[in-house]
Design a protein around this nucleic acid. Structure first.
Lengths: 135, 135
DNA sequence: CGGAATCCAGACTGATACTG
DNA sequence: CAGTATCAGTCTGGATTCCG
């Protein structure tokens, strides 16, 4: 990981800092509602590596309950981010895979992750400083 | 807004799809914890336009309670994303402004917002389809 | 005007147990 | 193995009230 690449693309400049509460902001809030929970990002991260079976996802994440994984996957499937393939074998086998749209989300997420990595130390410092001042 | 521009830059490929639960993923989860709540993004959006007073923020957002705005601002201030300036006048006057780090967050957020806008229709369709199939 | 403290209702999470 | 159902504990956001 961490190879370097040059990327060129056209982007729409409709910043948060633009008009009032326009479509863009609302759209952003919807996405954050979907991925802002405790597990969704991790599941996407696992699936980004390729199709994976239910229990394999659970093991890969570690700490997620059976129930929460089901709910998370349902949510993603509902929004067309993942595709579910069930095989009527015995025992049953179900594979989950990122849809094209799901894969397209990985890139913006990586952008955000880059920011997160770069600023984590600073945040940590700010946080300690603030907490100290508050006694 | 919505002019078109070509953007070239170097990006770090340390994708979600890389190794196991590395630093990056954890960092990303932390950020999402901070901005994934109901109001933080909107507050950042408002402050992105410039320094703003407490009540002005509240009016600009609309629907946020007094208490929630306080909590949201405290959280952002704690992490060094916003700076708070209090003037000991009567009546009191307090201004909030995005810190440099706070401003640097706007760009990745815009990236995500671009994705959100582009895919919202698709998501909407997928969602209705899924809900219909579920009866 | 800006903020803190209290209280409360609803949403979310997770452990457990059960089904196909 | 994959998924559902139930239930209890926790957390969140909001209304209200009081203080500087």
């Amino acid at each position: 990981m961490s190879t370097l690449k040059t990327e060129t693309r056209a982007v729409e400049i409709s910043s948060l800092s633009d008009g009032e509460d326009h479509s863009g902001c609302h759209a952003l809030l919807e996405v954050l509602d979907r991925i802002g929970d405790k597990w969704t990002v991790m599941v996407v991260g696992v699936l980004a590596k390729g199709p994976t079976r239910f229990n394999a996802i659970q093991r890969a994440i570690g700490g997620i309950s059976h129930r929460m994984l089901t709910r998370t996957l349902r949510g993603l499937e509902r929004d067309g981010m993942v595709e579910r393939r069930a095989f009527a074998t015995i025992p049953p086998k179900v594979e989950y895979e990122l849809s094209p749209m799901g894969r397209s989300l990985v890139s913006p997420l990586d952008t955000l992750m880059g920011w997160a990595q770069a600023h984590r130390p600073t945040i940590e410092v700010a946080r300690s400083g603030f907490d100290d001042r508050s006694d």
